[in-house]
Design a protein around this nucleic acid. Structure first.
Lengths: 329, 329
DNA sequence: CTGAAAGCGCTAACAC
DNA sequence: GTGTTAGCGCTTTCAG
């Protein structure tokens, strides 16, 4: 392994000068700088990030803890953090909690001493635990807020309202919400927003049992809807996968979309590369949310009363899967 | 920040003893060990991973560089590495190359000095570049092999052969392969295996233009197939997303699956949570591949002529989307 | 603009 | 079993 000292010797300068030449080029004479750079290049030298971190006190790493990578919702967030970090040469230290509170704590503890800050995506730990963590290092939550801590949330409630307004505007009065994942914080937000929007609009919302974000779940729900002969004329699914299942299931049962029933998703179908059978959906800028979280975590320690909050707006994309209900046609 | 020295003082021992008590419990008297543990707990102390890494020479981190997280193929591999690593308290340092060779090198260089080894998933860099890297630290490739370097490959060719044998066995003679992503190493493997299998079996393989792994691509291909009135009676798509698009597109055009045309995928549909409309597919143990890569990278430096290779077998799952061709019924 | 010296927090011989 | 003494490779005052 070649050390900075080796490069320094080869360039005929002290290690301090070599260090400066490499890390703070402007603090060194142009000629010296070049000599060092040349020596370093020739010897295939790279500054040892670990040693650097030990002296400077920061690692250039940001820890990102996600519940899982299997749900397509999360990878874009990680990508967002990574991209934002890449601008300054930083990297993402990843943790997958599997939605286990214990694992989440464990990961946080492990990552804690090797990162400059932690981005917790949809954390399952309690507020108190998160606060403890935040005392040791900068912490930002994504897709959940905790009193007193900085956070980034996608404005899904706002988007849901917008989506519901769209459906109501088309004339729908009996709308169903197929939500999930079971027990999630975000799902409660969505449900509440949906209910309020629909009821305020003079409609009636049927909240179906929450399901996991899978095509099969949508398929099953479609069957359920058809069998129970629900009077609903429109369904909002929380996940594209679920929507896809719904679409296939309803069509399979002989229902036409949107003639017989309208369908919409409260997340982004493009994650699965589907834009074609024109599906009305909420575009959710997950990557931006990740980038925003990264920015927050690297800002000054938010030791204030009013922690910064970023609310990332969604965008309603209206396509062919929504239309006026049958009786209105 | 509390340091080990602080804990040691509180426990009335030297730092070395405190260090041992925490890192190598069996080298210390039970009573001492407990005293140190207690002090550490009370003070909320955690060993500083950076300092530790500097002295021991290893970080407990493994770098994983993937082309993207948007393709559902890759996240499971990352998860596999992470899980395998978690057994020993390690973590994953993530890099997303965006399929850019330059970015890949850059990331490798950045991560190089902070990890114990590097897992390169479907790397785009040339063999020479990879070898250079491998001289500096343990490197394992996944989903691609490079002469002289350890690697993990999913035995997709084997799986493709099996899948084709299944189709041929059903009586299909005109089979199409819808592959991609364009230009990928793995796609060439698949195409070659498919062609050989089909031709050896007395059939004819139509290789369609490679497409990105998206539902829309399948939809477009379906249209294409129908319009061109291909005589094919079975289609193998390389991606579940593509298959899904194909399924929807063909059904939309009035074709029945599998009565009129059989469909199969050379990757795993369960990634999108779809098992219901029974789709014949190759189960690809991506997570295991990641875990295997992790194991390889942590083994002794493979400075040998014959680098270890792991071939992860796929498993053909036959479901309802494949049946004998129309004329055979 | 450059060099010397003092650590960052921890582990690892090496004695006792 | 435990303490002492050196560093790991780098950055950073502090002088010059």
């Amino acid at each position: 392994m070649v050390r900075l000292a080796d490069v320094a010797r080869a360039a005929g300068v002290s290690t301090s000068t070599a260090s400066r030449a490499l890390s703070r080029p402007d603090m060194v004479a142009a000629e010296t700088r070049e000599r060092v750079a040349k020596a370093a290049a020739e010897m295939g030298f790279t500054l040892n990030a670990t040693a650097r971190a030990l002296t400077t006190g920061h690692t250039g790493l940001v820890g990102v803890i996600v519940p899982t990578l299997a749900n397509p919702f999360f990878p874009p967030i990680v990508t967002g953090v990574q991209e934002s970090l890449a601008e300054t040469g930083g990297n993402v230290l990843l943790g997958v909690s599997d939605r286990s509170e214990e694992r989440e704590r464990e990961l946080a503890a492990q990552l804690g001493s090797r990162v400059d800050g932690l981005v917790l995506v949809a954390p399952v730990s309690g507020d108190a635990t998160l606060h403890e963590l935040a005392e040791r290092l900068p912490v930002v939550t994504v897709d959940r807020t905790t009193p007193g801590l900085p956070g980034v949330v996608v404005d899904t409630p706002g988007g849901v309202r917008e989506l519901m307004a769209h459906l109501l505007g088309l004339g729908h009065r009996h709308i169903a919400y197929l939500g999930g994942p079971p027990g999630s914080w975000m799902d409660r937000q969505r449900t509440r927003a949906a209910r309020k929007a629909v009821e305020d609009g003079g409609g009636e919302l049927t909240v179906l049992d929450p399901v996991p974000p899978q095509v099969d779940a949508g398929l099953a729900a479609a069957e359920h809807l058809v069998r129970r002969a629900e009077r609903v004329t429109a369904v909002m699914a929380y996940s594209s996968y679920v929507l896809l299942g719904l679409l296939m299931g309803l069509r399979g049962a002989g229902l036409r979309v949107p003639e017989d029933i309208s369908l919409a998703a409260s997340d982004d179908l493009t994650v699965i590369g589907m834009t074609q059978p024109g599906t009305t959906a909420l575009h959710v800028p997950l990557q931006e949310a990740g980038a925003a979280a990264c920015r927050l975590v690297r800002e000054a320690p938010h030791t204030g009363e009013r922690p910064p909050r970023v609310r990332v707006p969604t965008r309603l994309v209206v396509r062919g899967s929504t239309a006026p209900p049958p009786e209105k046609r």
